[in-house]
Every structure is written in C-alpha cells, then in structure tokens.
Design a protein around this nucleic acid. Sequence first.
DNA 1: GGTTGCCTTGACGTCGGCGGCAAGGTTTAG
DNA 2: CTAAACCTTGCCGCCGACGTCAAGGCAACC
Lengths: 130, 130
Amino acid sequence: MRIGELAERAGTSTRTLRYYESQGLVCPGRSANGYRIYDEAELRVVHEIRALLAVGFGLDDIRPFVACLRAGNSSGDVCPDSVAVLRRKLAEVDDYLDRLGAVRHQLHDQLARAIAHREETCLRTRNRAD
Amino acid sequence: MRIGELAERAGTSTRTLRYYESQGLVCPGRSANGYRIYDEAELRVVHEIRALLAVGFGLDDIRPFVACLRAGNSSGDVCPDSVAVLRRKLAEVDDYLDRLGAVRHQLHDQLARAIAHREETCLRTRNRAD
DNA sequence: GGTTGCCTTGACGTCGGCGGCAAGGTTTAG
DNA sequence: CTAAACCTTGCCGCCGACGTCAAGGCAACC
C-alpha cells in the first residue's frame, strides 16, 4: 500500500505520515520508483500513534509503544518501557489535575468576589441615588 | 522608574516588559533620552499580568483586567469585561478538567491491563518452565 | 578618555506537530 | 498527446511568550 491509501485508511494526511517517518516512528520500504510502500502492520502502528497522541502523549513518549508492537506483541502497552511511560504519564496527569483543580478553585473565588464587589458597588450607587 | 528597576521589582525581565508594551498591555512614558519611564501603578499592572499568566490566561484575555486597573479600580477583576473573561475561563477549565479526568481514567485502565497481561504472560512462562 | 552599566531597536531562535506550497518525476486513462 | 492523479524532496509558516544576540546611544565615574 502506498502513502495516500495508508493516510486515508488511518484517517490522517500523507504529510503526517512522512513526518512520523522523519521521527523514526514508521519505516516503510520503497518501490522501484522511490514510492513508499507500507504493509498492513503499519496501519496498526499509525492507529496506535494517533490514539496516544489524542491522549496527550508526545511522539517521543510514543516510540516505546511502536517498538513494542513491532516486537510482535498484540498490544503496544505490554512492554516494560511502555509501562514505564504509562506510569510517568499517569503521574503527570495526576499532577496536572491537582494544579488545574487549584486553578479552578482560585478562578471560582476570584469570580465570586468580583461579582460580590460589583453588587455591593451597585447597592451603594443606588443608595446615593436615593 | 526605568525598565531595569521595574523588571527587577516585578520579578521578570526587561525583554518581557518590552514585549508587554508591544502587545499594548503597558504604555510607559519616555524621558528626554528615549528611555522608558514607568510610574508605580505600572508595577501593579505587571503583577496582575504575571498572576493571570500563571493561572493560564493568554495576554489577550488579560487585556480587560489591565484596562480595569487603569480605570482606577482597586482590583482588575471587577469590570464587566473581566468578569466575562473569568466566567469563560472557568468554563474552559471545567471542560478541560472533565477531559483530563477521562484521560486519567483511560490511562489508569490501560496501565492496569498492561500489568495484568504481563503477570499472566509471566505465569504462563513459568508454567512452561515447570 | 576609557570603562562600566544602563538603555534603545531589530531580528532571529525556541518547542511540536504538522499544513501548505514549489518544482519536479511516474503512471494511467482517455 | 495530454491531462489527471499519484508520488518525491525541501523549505517556510504557525502559535505564544518570551530568550538571546547584535549594534549602537547615553550617563556616570575614575
């Protein structure tokens, strides 16, 4: 299969596939005229990449998962390196959730105070008008 | 006060202050030799900018808060435009928290399955070794 | 007058995951 | 014969909040 077909079947663009190749994530063969040739397994790989990207992984983090798939595993998750990345990412997400929760709290308070202040000012203005 | 002093007192860099100016967030006067001259109020403004940036606001979102401070309010939060931004940002954060929670859930499951799979494989391997 | 330390504008670099365009080669269909 | 539809490499653009020179002007002190 050539790059256009893979791109369509993977729901992405040829530009993206070439970019992944430049990053060492996919390594297609070449036909006589220089066209990239992908086998079916690469479709799986690209799907894995896309799924992990969607979760917020960077391409660097994804590399172990691809290697794991290439090693013949049914899932890219099961190799030690992948598990390590999963653990780290989970910790990062937990950390980010904490900080984002704090931010939410602060924004909530800030908004509440601003509204309270506005109502108070509004009342004073009305009283002056009386 | 010149730019170096303001930068130090605000805990940032001169480059940053010049950037804020290019974005219309601070507007210092000029002395005869062309040096930027800031008054004390600008320190307050820069602190406001930094605080909001730290919470995850973009410079565009911050503009109303600065305008509110400039209008003579004791807080940058109390003007209608600022409140609108606060509301929007709070909604954005809530949304992001939801999605990040879902991601956390998925990562957690993915990790659990990967570990379970590894233990199972390990058992099978041991059994074969028996 | 030389050095040091401020200040000025301007322009390019950073990070990541691509989009988009240019200039060309290949293959197929009409 | 030519147009269409693929493919190739290569390079610039994007976003945002700056960092980092570069080249030069101004002020103060010894």
